[in-house]
Computed example of a mutant assay.
Amino acid sequence: MPEQVSAGELADRVLAHPSVVRLHGGQFGEIASYLPGRKVVGVRLPESGAAEIGVVLRLDRPLPEVLGEIRGALAEALGDVPVDITVADVITGEPRGGA
């Protein structure tokens, strides 16, 4: 895992995708990174193995296409580290509450 990559940076890259509504921590909140003074929900960077991302997506395009774009954006920062993306939910219309 490249040392210079932070969970916050990865979260920003994921949230920049237009089909991503929000990050998701998984059923039990297991997809998260703990940093000094804060927790980044939806991004887990283990010492070894795949980076884990949890998302809620807007169902506006084919999911494989969207997931490929998200992986591509993360590959710029992670290099050859594999990325596992969990789609926790999809939104078919405008999300309630504007988020």
Rank of each mutant, 00 (worst) to 15 (best):
M1Y: 07
M1W: 00
M1H: 02
E3K: 07
E3D: 11
Q4R: 11
V5G: 01
S6P: 12
S6M: 05
A7Y: 15
G8C: 03
E9A: 15
A11T: 12
D12Q: 15
D12S: 12
V14M: 02
V14W: 02
V14S: 02
L15G: 09
A16E: 11
H17F: 13
S19Y: 11
V20M: 06
V20E: 00
V20A: 04
V21D: 00
V21M: 07
V21A: 01
L23E: 02
L23P: 09
H24C: 15
Q27R: 15
Q27K: 06
G29A: 12
E30F: 04
A32N: 04
S33R: 01
S33K: 03
S33Q: 08
G37M: 06
G37C: 05
R38P: 08
K39G: 04
K39V: 13
V40C: 13
V41F: 10
G42M: 12
G42R: 08
R44C: 08
R44D: 04
P46G: 06
S48H: 08
G49K: 04
G49E: 02
G49A: 03
A51M: 03
E52R: 07
I53M: 01
G54H: 14
V56H: 09
L57C: 03
L59Y: 13
L59Q: 14
D60C: 12
D60K: 06
D60M: 00
R61W: 05
R61K: 06
P62K: 10
P62L: 09
P62Y: 13
L63H: 10
E65I: 14
V66I: 14
L67S: 08
L67D: 12
L67M: 12
G68K: 03
E69D: 06
E69R: 07
I70Q: 04
I70T: 05
G72D: 07
A73S: 02
A75V: 14
E76A: 08
A77R: 08
G79N: 03
D80W: 03
D80Y: 12
V81S: 08
P82D: 03
P82A: 01
D84S: 03
I85W: 00
A88W: 04
A88N: 14
A88C: 13
D89Q: 06
D89I: 13
D89M: 06
V90T: 15
V90P: 00
T92E: 14
T92M: 10
G93H: 15
G93I: 07
P95Y: 00
R96A: 15
